[in-house]
Simulated assay, not measured.
Amino acid sequence: MRFVIFGAGAVGGVVGGLLAVAGHEVALLARGRHLAAIRSAGLTVETPTDRHLVRVAAAETPAELGMRPDDVVFLAMKGNDTGAALRSLAPVADPRTPVVCLQNGVANERAALRLFEHVYGICVMCPTTHLEPGVVRADCAPTPGILDIGQFPGGVDETAVAIASALADAGFVSEPDPAIMRWKYAKLLTNLGNAIDAVCTRTPEVAELTARARAEARGVLDAAGIGYASDAEDAVRRGEILQVRTERGGGSSWQSLTRGTGSIETDYLNGEIVLLARERGLAAPLNENARRWANRFAAEGRVPRSLSVAEWTATLGSAAPWGLAAGPRGLGDKP
C-alpha cells in the first residue's frame, strides 16, 4: 500500500511525513515553491519534540507521479481546490482506488464519490502549521492528532481499518467509525470561526461573534435534518489527547492569508451553511458575512486580523464587503 498525499501542506505534509517516518511508503503531491523545496531538500516535519527530514517521491500532478494499483490517495488540499484535484486524478487512477478525504468541510466526499467507488472521510482534529516552503509542523505532542475514519456515506470496511492502523503506526489516534460524517459536521461547526479569526482583530468580541455564527449554523443543520456530534461528545473524544505544545499563530484560514495564497476555503466552511440555508429558503447572515469578508481578504491580499469587529458587523445583511452599494439588486447585478 502506497499513500499518495495529494496536497502536502500543513495537515497533508504532517500526516504523510509521519507515515513515512513510521516506515510506510509515501508519495507527495505539492506545487510551487513548496514542491521545489521538497524536491531539492526533502520535507522537514517538525514536532514539539523532534525534527524529521523526509525524502520521498514528490510531483506536481498525479500524471507526473504515476499512479499504481496499490495506491491509497489522501486528498489534503483545501475544499476550494478539490474539484481541480479530482479532475487531474480521475484520468490516471483506477476508479476503484481508495480516496480518503483528509479535509475539513463536508462537500469533498460527495465530489470524490462521483468519480471513485471507494471514498472515505476523516474527521481532522490535528493542529498543524505550514508557513514556509518545505516545512510543516505538528503542534501537538505526544499525539499529533485524532484522525478517525469511515466510509462515505457510511460504514467501515477492511480498507478503513488498514488505514486507521497505519495512522496509528505514525503516532495518531485513529479509529474506524461507521458514522464519520456525523463527526465531520461537528468539526464543520468548529471550523466556522476560522474565517472570523483570520480577518478580525483579536478582541473578546470575536469569541462572541463566533459563537453566534455557530448557533446560526446549528439552526440550519437542524432545519435540514442533518445530525452532528454534540459538544459534549466532542469533548469526550478529544479528552486530554490533543496537547498543543507550540505557539500557534492561527488556524488554516489565517495561514492561507499569511502565506498570501490568494484563496481561502471559506466557501466550503461557512459557505456550506449558507448553501444549506438557501436551499431551504432560510438566511444565514453571519456565515454569509464571514464568507464574503474572508474571500475579500484573500483576493486583495489584506493583512490578516486587520478588521475590527465593528467594521465586520456593520456589513451584516448587505453587499458592502465587495464594495457594492447596499439596497435592492436587479437581476443583472452581482451578488
Rank of each mutant, 00 (worst) to 15 (best):
G42K: 12
R31N: 01
C200M: 05
G327Q: 11
A57L: 13
G145H: 09
F74R: 01
L89W: 02
P178I: 07
N104I: 13
L18W: 08
F297Q: 01
E265M: 09
G171C: 01
L86M: 06
L192T: 10
L192H: 02
A326K: 10
A168R: 15
A57G: 04
R305K: 13
A164W: 11
T143R: 15
L115V: 00
L19C: 09
D197E: 15
V4G: 03
A138L: 12
W312I: 06
I241W: 13
R110T: 15
A141T: 05
L257V: 06
E233M: 13
T49C: 03
T129M: 14
C101N: 05
R296F: 01
V244A: 01
G171S: 00
N295R: 15
A195R: 06
L269G: 05
A215L: 10
V99L: 05
A170E: 07
H24M: 10
L115W: 01
W293D: 02
V15P: 00
A90H: 07
N108A: 15
A112S: 08
L65V: 03
M1T: 14
V220H: 07
Y228T: 05
T97E: 11
D177H: 14
E132R: 14
A76Q: 01
V73E: 13
D169I: 13
D169R: 15
D148F: 05
T143M: 09
P321E: 09
P328Y: 15
A277R: 12
A166H: 12
A10E: 01
L86P: 03
D222N: 14
A325D: 10
A164E: 06
N104Q: 08
R305P: 04
M67D: 04
A57P: 08
G317V: 03
W293I: 05
R39C: 03
H130S: 10
V100F: 04
M1Q: 07
E64L: 05
A294H: 06
I5W: 07
R68T: 07
A325S: 12
W293R: 09
R51H: 06
V21Q: 09
A213I: 00
L331V: 15
V11Q: 01
A232Q: 10
G155Q: 05
P321M: 03
P133K: 01
S253F: 08
E208M: 12
I146P: 08
P176F: 11
G330C: 01
A76P: 10
A107R: 15
M67L: 12
A84K: 12
D148M: 11
V15S: 02
P91R: 02
A211H: 02
L324V: 07
G193E: 07
E109T: 03
L276H: 08
E60N: 01
D81K: 06
N80R: 03
N108P: 04
L257Y: 05
G323I: 06
S256E: 13
G83N: 01
P48G: 13
T49S: 14
